[in-house]
Design a protein around this nucleic acid. Structure first.
Lengths: 333, 333
DNA sequence: CTGTTAGCGCGTTCAA
DNA sequence: TTGAACGCGCTAACAG
């Protein structure tokens, strides 16, 4: 590592304003129960601006034990529209609460979890996937207060995470059961998203059970039209045939649509398909895709609430998962 | 801010191993020209492990003047598959070089740029969009060595950024001119990606000019089939008709395909379309989309090389933009 | 040759 | 309002 470069420090400001470093600190942090003359305050503020003073976050972090960073740990699976959007909303939500949200991709080959939080000393860690107990313990020991895995049953919130995913599957199923007696589930061809897929599938199963319908017929549907066509053939060959498909997400749903075209069939006439995510392309699918969208700004707000509450030792209130979910009905179902 | 919690420090390790804190530091950093007995070394290492010692990054950063963080500043526009993938590859590339790559979304409503780098004291900042000179100056003054805007003409590399985007447009055009005399450019319906769109369009223009063909006919194509159909109508009504379309990206390309279906037309018979990005859905488009993909791992490596070179005061070598681009030919063109 | 002492970097805060 | 000390790791200079 190279040596540091010049920097304006609080000592420089103190010298410029003719006061002590302590006074500079008091003024800049509006410390209560420390009476500072208005004249002194102005002198310090002016000096700070004149010199372009920027407090060292490192020193602050060293002192407090943790930074104002909230670390988002992204999963290894491909990041699409939804995760990107959620990250943006989380960034805004945390900014409102004076926290800096940064994201690190937890991809294999990247740095180990411990190296990352050691580097950042975050106030809170928000992970998509579960991490080990030892990691969690170590983080807490290092000063990170909140440690949350979004898609883990340990997560407290009901509006996001586990319950939210179930509600997504349920919403798909409820739309289809109006005109289809037998549902299928188009499972993603990617091990890494299995956690999600299982939860959403669970939601579909729940609706089927509640209505006394047969359990959904699960098939993996990769993003290859010909292979998707095979899955469709099997669904339609069942007795009674499976005609309503809940797809894991819009991509998988569009693959089902491609499979239908491959067989010379048509949605929703021969088979109805519902996706998840409300990606922009879903609107230009063939036919335009009916899909379940989540209210990501609301989810982000709730996440941020939970984290800030935990940071101050309180408990945040939950909002129901259903409130965050909406069905966009287009032509595919 | 709440007070800090307990933490294992180098002093604890020193006490446990029966040596001074200096010795602990020497051992843990493999400091040259400081001979440490193997026995002592083992004792320190053992103590560190036993206690679960994790050096404070804040203290290190305070000492060195900057952290080992490389900050990626994401643009405000929607983050899709490609940016997500690039972030993953950059994370891996920087990890190889012992740097921690984190990303912050520069969305409106988020924290100001200055607050972010003050918080992180990054070794380098990698931005997708240009930032102001005052920001750049302030960052350098604060100890951040490298400050780069990827899609800015100031960027040195030829393989990524500006030159890369031009090469993408050129690749699209070169594929189409084999069988189409008049090209169209499907421009995105989003102000925020105009920087990109202009560069890619420039690449298309260049090929047309070189071959003595008319300049590409530019039309905005939103993600609405009926509106896309209008654009297609205009293209086909031209004299001679525009029959080869370079789309800004796969989404826009798929919208063009939807517009064709809307008119009862078919690609590539009535109009050929080439996308950009190689998104997974492009493979299940109707018809499957021909698209230009970038070698993101290679681009990430080159970015990381440039940054590390700059961090050590050297100059990295460039590789040509064309080497990072590949055409995936499917059915749409 | 091996290991220690001492002080720095910067903002915060207690005691005076 | 301020001097002094603290948080934690690094390293030049020095002692054994």
């Amino acid at each position: 590592m190279a040596p540091r470069s010049s920097r304006v420090t609080s000592a420089d400001v103190a010298r410029e304003a003719g006061v002590s470093r302590a006074t500079v600190s008091f003024v800049l942090n509006n410390t209560r129960h420390q009476k500072i003359t208005d004249a002194t305050r102005q002198r310090v503020l002016a000096a700070a601006i004149r010199l372009g003073y920027a407090p060292s976050a490192a020193a602050r972090t060293l002192r407090y034990g943790r930074s104002d960073v909230v670390l988002g740990l992204l999963p290894e699976w491909p990041l699409g529209f939804t995760v990107g959007h959620l990250v943006q909303e989380l960034t805004v939500a945390f900014a409102k609460r004076d926290l800096t949200f940064v994201v690190h991709s937890g991809i294999r080959g990247a740095r180990s979890l411990s190296e990352i939080w050691k580097t950042l000393t975050p106030a809170a860690v928000l992970a998509f996937e579960t991490f080990s107990d030892s990691d969690a313990t170590a983080m807490r020991a290092a000063g990170t207060e909140v440690v949350v895995a979004l898609y883990d049953s340990k997560w407290l919130g009901t509006g996001v995470g586990v319950a939210g995913e179930r509600a997504i599957g349920a919403a798909q199923a409820r739309h289809l059961v109006a005109s289809h007696r037998r549902l299928g589930y188009a499972y993603p061809d990617d091990e890494r998203v299995a956690v999600f897929a299982e939860l959403r599938l669970d939601g579909v199963r729940g609706v089927c059970t509640d209505l006394g319908l047969p359990a959904p017929e699960v098939r993996a549907v990769p993003l290859t039209p010909s292979v998707a066509a095979d899955a469709i053939g099997a669904w339609l060959a069942a007795d009674p045939p499976v005609t309503g498909i809940c797809a894991f997400n819009d991509e998988v749903a569009m693959s089902v649509l491609a499979g239908l075209r491959h067989l010379g069939l048509e949605a929703p006439r021969d088979m109805a398909v519902v996706g998840v995510d409300g990606t922009p392309v879903a609107a230009v699918a063939c036919p335009p895709l009916t899909t379940v969208v989540q209210d990501l700004p609301a989810i982000a707000e709730q996440c941020a609430d939970t984290v800030t509450a935990a940071l101050s030792g309180a408990q945040a209130s939950d909002s129901p998962a259903e409130a965050h979910i909406r069905l966009v009905v287009r032509e595919s179902a």
